[in-house]
């Protein structure tokens, strides 16, 4: 409950934040603080310096551009969930964000902080992965963009370099007959996902599946992309039996995480159930 001492710097621009990161070894960025401060209170994290980027206005907000939507890293979960643009054009991200933590947490926790922390049981990574999102990073050498599929490296580990700032998440706007769904089976204590299933389903005019995507939080150390299930759906008419069969035949998850509440193998079983439900909900919304 009592964080250790640190030096505190408040950055007024991303450039200043990058400069401060270079000047202070092992410094941590502070955005909403909802992943970092809990760890500091338990002294599981004792960073020597914090660089507060929470007031950099340019990092906040949702903007549209040419079929894609950019969400500033400092946009809080509540704003992601309530964004008109996202609700109409990328409802999966809004739905996943509405599942993060509780209403107080959603008022302060940020999308950038969440993804940079890369908690495997959080709600956003699978959604961003299922959407084929892109992570925007800015460092001393300039900006770079990393596909979500390449961003999550391991448990709590990402491709974000120590001197970089995650500035935005870019996701495609959905078009045509596309439906999405995020369904979570939550841990009763933490509220984190034991299994969160993010599904995207696009239909052709004849009702057959034009494309699909299915990803999971909570089951593996990084969000799991069940591409074989998605592939098995393409071209098919998605009645319930077809979806069930595609999941049963094609969902295989290696190295699932387990804990005392829910073992790895059990989580895989839940993933099957939630995959079916999420795909069906996405289909119904398409």
């Amino acid at each position: 409950m009592y964080p250790a001492k640190f030096d505190y710097y408040r950055a007024s621009s991303v450039q200043e934040a990058i400069q401060l990161l270079q000047e202070h070894e092992d410094a941590k960025l502070l955005a909403g603080g909802h992943s970092l401060i809990p760890a500091m209170k338990l002294r599981l994290a004792q960073p020597p310096a914090l660089i507060d980027i929470g007031r950099i206005a340019e990092l906040r907000g949702v903007t549209q551009d040419n079929g894609s939507i950019k969400v500033g890293a400092l946009t809080v979960h509540a704003d992601v969930a309530a964004s008109d643009v996202l609700q109409s054009q990328c409802p999966l991200l809004a739905e996943a964000a509405s599942n993060v933590g509780d209403r107080q947490v959603r008022h302060k926790g940020t999308i950038g902080g969440n993804l940079a922390h890369a908690d495997p049981a959080s709600d956003l990574p699978a959604a961003v992965l299922a959407l084929g999102g892109t992570i925007h990073l800015l460092g001393p050498g300039g900006s770079r963009q990393v596909a979500a599929a390449d961003f999550f490296l391991d448990l709590l580990a990402t491709d974000l370099h120590e001197d970089e700032v995650l500035t935005a998440i870019e996701v495609p706007a959905i078009s045509g007959k596309t439906g999405t769904a995020y369904l979570k089976f939550e841990h009763p204590a933490s509220g984190y996902a034991l299994c969160g299933a993010a599904a995207v389903v696009s239909l052709n005019d004849d009702g057959t599946c034009a494309g699909a995507s299915l990803c999971f939080n909570g089951v593996t150390a990084t969000p799991h992309n069940a591409s074989a299930v998605a592939a098995a759906l393409v071209g098919k008419t998605l009645d319930d039996a077809t979806i069930d069969q595609a999941v049963n035949a094609n969902l295989s998850i290696a190295d699932p995480m387990g804990d005392m509440y829910a073992s790895g193998p059990y989580r895989v079983e839940v993933a099957k159930t939630y995959a079916k439900r999420a795909l069906k909900a996405a289909r119904d919304r398409a």
Binding site: H187, P188, A189, S190, M260, Y261
Partner: peptide
């Protein structure tokens, strides 16, 4: 009945040692 349970591992560490683990 449904959620709560204090768990010790074999070394006597309380693994359900916070409200993140122990479900009220």
């Amino acid at each position: 009945a449904l959620w709560e349970g204090a768990m010790y591992d074999d070394n006597g560490q309380l693994v359900s040692g916070s409200l993140m683990d122990y479900a009220l």
